[in-house]
Simulated scan of single mutants.
Amino acid sequence: MMVVMNIDATKEQIDAVIARVEANKFKVIVNPGEERTVIAVVGPNPSAIREQLMYMPGVDHTVPISRPYKIASREFIPENTVFPLDGFMIGGDEVVMIAGPCAVESRSQLLECAQAVKEAGAHALRGGAFKPRSSPYSFQGMGEEGLEILAEAREVTGLPVFTEVIAPEQVPLVAKYADVLQIGARNMQNFALLHAAGECDKPVLLKRGPSALIEELLMAAEYILSHGNRRVILCERGVRTFETSTRNTTDINAIPVLKNLTHLPVILDPSHSTGHADLVAPVARAGIAAGADGLIIEVHPNPRQALSDGGQSLTPEKFAILVRQAKGIAREVGRK
């Protein structure tokens, strides 16, 4: 339930409503909007205290929140969540380009790739230091050494770093080096990790699980948001279906659906959703046209020698072409 305060409600009146809610053992989430404050009452059957609240001084009206996710819902926060990250805005008018290799393989590989994607027009650098792989015999990443190389690449290029965290105890370590923590598809419902990410002060990129409903993705985001970390980016990266001609099935529908349901930024990962380098650019273009706030693209200076996901990685030259195409499509849909 939402308690909508009057435009001229005083701080004392707002505090009194919060105190009444907490006295009834419900959780309070406050959204100080531009015109008026909205207080979310979270817990089982919040309508039980509706009559107590609706007649309190300063209260305009109460509204039920119909979605199981509360803070992520546009019902609670109607305006888009927009936040800055090293010179650009996520969730605003810009279509953000995040690019880099699937995994940090060496210092020379990452620095070469970081410089190339920056020159092509990337806003941020991606790269995995910890890699949760399907096979225990596959390359698992360079760990903290990989994080140190990512931090060096940021110093050299000025690009903020997105990198994956795969366990709750890793959050402080990864946050020490990264600008944005990525929670991968396999960990979308790793609730201990979601709690830890929510308690961190870094933005979080949350990928949709391979078999997850859109509502389940938003409920996973709610775990992070419930701890007060409001800088969450949602990522569509394809879902598992009966189709075998691509790695996953890109759910383009999910982009406008999510934009309708939530105020959080939504980006697309066409590398993992297709699994084929020659399909990345067409699907990326479709994602921008569908309303994505950004793209996260795997780029490798020599995809044939990549230790992870070389088959879906673009060369720097092909990424530069995609950036130029993305600019044209973005303009046509009213974006930068």
Rank of each mutant, 00 (worst) to 15 (best):
residue 63 V to Y: 05
residue 164 E to S: 09
residue 281 A to V: 15
residue 99 A to Q: 12
residue 23 A to M: 07
residue 67 R to Q: 15
residue 102 C to Q: 06
residue 185 A to E: 03
residue 103 A to H: 08
residue 159 L to S: 02
residue 298 E to S: 04
residue 99 A to C: 12
residue 255 I to Q: 03
residue 236 E to P: 04
residue 104 V to H: 09
residue 16 A to Q: 11
residue 150 L to W: 03
residue 7 I to C: 00
residue 329 I to D: 08
residue 311 G to M: 09
residue 290 A to H: 05
residue 238 G to F: 05
residue 262 T to V: 01
residue 184 G to M: 02
residue 139 F to I: 05
residue 192 A to P: 00
residue 79 E to I: 07
residue 186 R to L: 08
residue 193 L to H: 10
residue 331 R to D: 13
residue 15 D to Y: 00
residue 5 M to C: 05
residue 164 E to G: 08
residue 333 V to R: 06
residue 214 I to C: 01
residue 166 I to P: 00
residue 318 K to P: 00
residue 77 I to E: 13
residue 193 L to V: 08
residue 43 G to K: 11
residue 81 T to G: 00
residue 324 R to D: 15
residue 159 L to W: 03
residue 251 D to P: 01
residue 128 G to D: 01
residue 158 G to I: 11
residue 124 A to I: 02
residue 267 I to W: 12
residue 312 Q to R: 10
residue 115 Q to D: 09
residue 317 E to N: 00
residue 77 I to F: 09
residue 124 A to C: 02
residue 167 A to S: 15
residue 113 C to A: 13
residue 73 S to K: 02
residue 133 R to F: 06
residue 148 E to R: 15
residue 128 G to P: 01
residue 57 P to N: 03
residue 188 M to F: 07
residue 332 E to H: 00
residue 22 E to Q: 14
residue 110 L to H: 09
residue 30 V to K: 14
residue 283 V to S: 08
residue 45 N to E: 14
residue 204 V to K: 04
residue 145 E to V: 05
residue 46 P to L: 10
residue 60 D to W: 11
residue 256 P to D: 07
residue 66 S to Q: 13
residue 52 Q to W: 05
residue 187 N to A: 02
residue 160 P to C: 06
residue 32 P to V: 03
residue 231 R to K: 15
residue 45 N to Q: 13
residue 58 G to V: 11
residue 323 V to R: 10
residue 80 N to P: 13
residue 161 V to H: 07
residue 74 R to L: 02
residue 144 E to M: 11
residue 41 V to T: 08
residue 215 E to N: 09
residue 173 L to R: 13
residue 177 Y to D: 04
residue 244 T to I: 07
residue 309 D to M: 09
residue 9 A to M: 06
residue 24 N to H: 14
residue 334 G to S: 12
residue 322 L to Y: 11
residue 32 P to Y: 05
residue 223 Y to N: 03
residue 165 V to F: 09
residue 55 Y to L: 13
residue 114 A to H: 01
residue 175 A to G: 15
residue 246 T to E: 12
residue 334 G to I: 11
